[in-house]
């Protein structure tokens, strides 16, 4: 009788990744959650339990900016879901068309903004849309539609949508690439079988391809969700930490940043900042769980 031997090599090979991941991800995460339960009173760190969360959700001074930021976050996400992902799928469908010329060129051109830094994107778009030096007003002027131009980034009612669309421009390459890969994985035989049954062109896309790429669409949605609720960089680069005008572009990331690190005369409060960060973590966790347990498990998969 052999007792199953403990397989040391598994532990040894896992160790580096586990250690690094624990040090840079798991430990900071739990430490942040822990930090949210403390407060600073007279230079001393004191355990206050859920007091910070009570302040965050019940004190209007804190809760109003929080709900404002959360609402803005949802709008940011909705714009991505309604604009970025459909366009990404459409681009992928066009790119995968066998008779399209220069497909590789288009693919790279659309994907390139994704690898640009947020700072570059934010700054470039600010210049493009600038009412003073920007090319947007002169381009609109050239086609006689100058009246349509507004200082979009400076108006409460447009700023957030404008930034969301800039972000869409930057990241549309990601859903495009993922869907493109999924579309390429669909075997020719299935499409040919469809053709025999008279399903061609657009209806082939709706009836055969789309159901087959739905799992990828699901993954993209959840990536978009996580990315958007963690967003910070673009808003910070374009509008600064105060997320103007009048907090109309304030999202959870910028709100957390201002609270945690302080801003101008406002001193940083790591404890309230951690409470907001924990709130963001909870929201993302709930969103991902809804997806994993509510949607993904029920999604029908086809063996290709």
């Amino acid at each position: 009788m052999h007792r199953p031997r403990f397989r040391w090599h598994i532990a040894v090979f896992l160790a580096p990744a586990v250690l690094v991941y624990t040090a840079v991800m798991i430990f900071p995460l739990f430490n942040t959650l822990r930090l949210a339960l403390y407060s600073k009173v007279d230079q001393e760190r004191v355990f206050v339990g859920l007091e910070n969360f009570r302040t965050l959700f019940l004190d209007p001074v804190w809760s109003e900016p929080f709900w404002n930021a959360l609402g803005n976050n949802f709008w940011f996400f909705i714009v991505h879901m309604l604009v970025q992902n459909p366009i990404g799928i459409a681009l992928a469908a066009i790119l995968s068309h066998p008779r399209l010329r220069f497909a590789a060129l288009y693919r790279s051109a659309i994907f390139i903004p994704t690898i640009l830094s947020f700072v570059i994107v934010g700054f470039a778009w600010k210049l493009i849309l600038s009412p003073i030096w920007g090319i947007a007003p002169s381009m609109l002027d050239a086609v006689g539609m100058k009246s349509l131009f507004a200082p979009w980034l400076g108006k409460e009612e447009y700023a957030l949508t404008t930034l969301a669309l800039i972000s869409v421009w930057q990241f549309v390459g990601i859903p495009m690439m993922l869907i493109y890969a999924a579309l390429l994985a669909i075997p020719e035989e299935i499409l040919e079988a469809g053709e025999v049954d008279g399903i061609t062109g657009l209806s082939a896309f709706w009836k055969i391809k789309l159901p087959l790429i739905l799992p990828s669409v699901g993954i993209i949605s959840i990536l978009t969700f996580v990315g958007n609720f963690n967003a910070f960089d673009l808003i910070y680069a374009a509008q600064g930490a105060l997320a103007g005008p009048d907090f109309s572009t304030d999202i959870l990331g910028t709100y957390m940043y201002r609270t945690f690190f302080g801003f101008q005369l406002q001193l940083g409060d790591p404890h309230m900042g951690s409470a907001i960060a924990s709130g963001m973590f909870a929201i993302i966790l709930i969103g991902v769980c809804i997806y994993l347990f509510g949607i993904q498990t029920r999604m029908r998969r086809y063996q290709l």
């Binding site: 003073i132 200082p151 108006k155």
Partner: peptide, 16 residues
């Protein structure tokens, strides 16, 4: 303040 001052940044003003 001139057209589009709503989106005019601090360096914009300096340069203007």
């Amino acid at each position: 303040l001139g057209d589009g001052y709503e989106a005019q940044t601090y360096p914009d003003s300096q340069n203007l």
